[in-house]
């Protein structure tokens, strides 16, 4: 077709972008999938192709001496379709990256503010720019917390008892001082700690709370 779009199912406009968004959505709630750079670049490539067709159609109309604003011929609608496809692709790309960024913000609240605090299996799902974004966003949070002089990523659940019983799950190592008391936090040892002190280690998976 002169309008420059194609009806074959394989190359239909927007199909790849749709796959990208679906891929984000298919993950378990709150779980990130691997960043799909390849698919993202393919969609971006489709956008460039849309743009080329769009430009060439506009040029063609200009050469024919037609006013693009008022003429309603096949070329006009062809250009329009390519413009709309491009926008749709853009929205899908942005939705993919933005929604992942929101989940990354969430990691800073629930897991930790430092990249090394994130478990290996989460880290490997992030792209390089996403890791950078995580670091920068964490810094913004930290800078706010230091300005108001209050840690906001502790105390996430309403306090019941100021002290809780915990078991150490990993070798936390010595030299960790909890509320000015140093203790030997060997693996599997159990302790009675201040909840605010322990929360940090629980969220990192280094300790677990013993209930009942």
């Amino acid at each position: 077709m002169s309008a420059g779009f194609c009806f074959s199912k394989e190359n239909m406009h927007g199909r790849l972008a749709c796959r990208l968004v679906k891929e984000f959505n298919s993950g378990e709630k709150g779980q990130l999938n691997h960043f799909n750079e390849e698919l993202l670049n393919e969609v971006a490539k489709e956008c460039s192709e849309n743009f080329l067709v769009l430009q060439s159609l506009i040029r063609k109309m200009q050469e024919e001496g037609l006013d693009f604003q008022t003429t309603r011929n096949a070329d006009h609608y062809g250009a329009l379709i390519n413009h709309l496809s491009l926008i749709r692709n853009k929205r899908c790309l942005m939705a993919y990256v933005y929604n992942r960024a929101e989940m990354i913000q969430n990691l800073a609240w629930t897991v930790g503010l430092r990249l090394f605090e994130l478990p290996e299996e989460i880290q490997e799902k992030l792209s390089h720019p996403e890791k950078e974004y995580f670091k920068k966003h964490s810094l913004a949070l930290e800078s706010y917390m230091s300005k108001v002089d209050l840690d906001l990523n502790v105390d996430m659940v309403p306090p019941k008892d100021p002290y809780i019983k915990v078991r150490v799950l990993d070798d936390v190592g010595e030299g960790i001082v909890v509320s000015d008391k140093a203790a030997n936090f060997a693996r599997h040892s159990m302790h009675f700690l201040k909840r605010t002190d322990a929360e940090l280690y629980i969220s990192r998976g280094l300790m677990e709370e013993l209930t009942g």
Binding site: A44, C47, L93, V97, A101, S127, Y133, A140
Partner: peptide
């Protein structure tokens, strides 16, 4: 800061690849 960081991130990952 949030806006700057987010914009930079979107820029780098998506927008710079668009027409």
């Amino acid at each position: 800061r949030c806006i700057d960081d987010m914009e930079k991130h979107l820029e780098e990952t998506v927008l710079s690849k668009l027409p």
